[in-house]
């Protein structure tokens, strides 16, 4: 009899918890939707600035494909890789960067700025998760030009390589999503560092230089670097592994590489939350 009553109460508590979680999720979705609307309104208001920034971002990130074309145009190249295969890697990298710029890269800049100016508590007192609200508030449409540019290069490249099977496409999408999560991990680590290294606008440069290893076939680097780019800071997952899956160069061992990527993301989230907890401010 007592056992039955305990069971009933436990079920009731679980129901309430699920309901609360559902409401919380719905509230977060509403907040995110509103932030996207605001971002759209901002882009519409400052149309010229928006178009100019989109174009510059697009031009800026097609430099690497241009260098690849120039290298191959001179008769040189990376052994075992055609120009379209290398372009495929770089276009995936561009698309991943565009998604990151639109959805979560802003967290790094806004955290850096808020810590420097001492405004962070204005966000901390809000009844939502700090990391979430900063990502939502910094949603930007400016990366859309970059994404389209990456997509065009991707289509050109894919039309000039072997036709991938459905399984290859599925693998590609899985790795691509994991690659975007690695980008998120990097953004959060950078944002977390800005709590200690206050006002240093060159922090992103450090990670940008590390990420540049991910724009090329990993076979051109020595094993030690490949271990670092696959396990420690898994930037190879951003573009190399998704491209390898599409080109049929993947193997079952590649699935294991998902683990360090997820661990890296969790490390980024943990570090960011830890630094937020350590933050001290006196009213901006």
């Amino acid at each position: 009899m007592v056992d039955k009553r305990v069971d009933k109460r436990t079920n009731l508590n679980m129901d309430i918890k699920i309901k609360q979680n559902g409401l919380r999720l719905r509230r977060y979705l509403t907040v995110y939707k509103e932030c996207v609307k605001v971002a759209f309104a901002t882009a519409s208001t400052y149309r010229l600035n928006f178009i100019l920034n989109c174009t510059i971002m697009l031009l800026g990130d097609i430099i690497f494909p241009l260098i690849t074309v120039l290298i191959y145009g001179s008769g040189a190249g990376f052994e075992g890789w055609t120009v379209y295969e290398v372009l495929l890697i770089q276009s995936i990298f561009t698309m991943s960067t565009a998604i990151a710029d639109m959805t979560f890269h802003g967290v790094m800049w806004v955290t850096m700025d808020m810590v420097r100016s001492g405004n962070m508590e204005m966000v901390l007192i809000l009844p939502v998760d700090t990391m979430f609200i900063l990502m939502a508030r910094t949603f930007s449409f400016e990366g859309i030009g970059l994404f389209i540019g990456g997509l065009v290069i991707f289509i050109v490249a894919i039309l000039n390589v072997v036709v991938p099977s459905i399984l290859m496409w599925l693998q590609f999408f899985a790795y691509f999503i994991i690659g975007v999560l690695v980008m998120m991990g990097i953004a959060l680590v950078m944002a977390a560092i800005s709590f200690k290294w206050v006002g240093n606008s060159r922090i992103p440069e450090i990670f940008s230089s590390i990420r540049s290893f991910g724009k090329y076939p990993q076979s051109i680097f020595p094993k030690a670097i490949v271990i670092i780019t696959s396990i420690i800071i898994p930037i190879a997952m951003i573009a190399y592994y998704p491209a390898a899956a599409l080109l049929g160069r993947g193997n079952s061992g590649m699935f294991i590489m998902i683990l360090p990527c997820l661990l890296f993301l969790l490390f980024g989230i943990y570090l960011y939350r830890y630094m937020v907890r350590l933050y001290q401010g006196v009213g901006g």
Binding site: F78, I206, I210, S212, Y216, I220, I225
Partner: peptide, 15 residues
């Protein structure tokens, strides 16, 4: 870091 990247890119490109 950028220099290392360039080093390996060009070493591979020269073959």
């Amino acid at each position: 870091i950028y220099f290392i990247v360039q080093y390996f890119i060009w070493t591979a490109a020269y073959g």
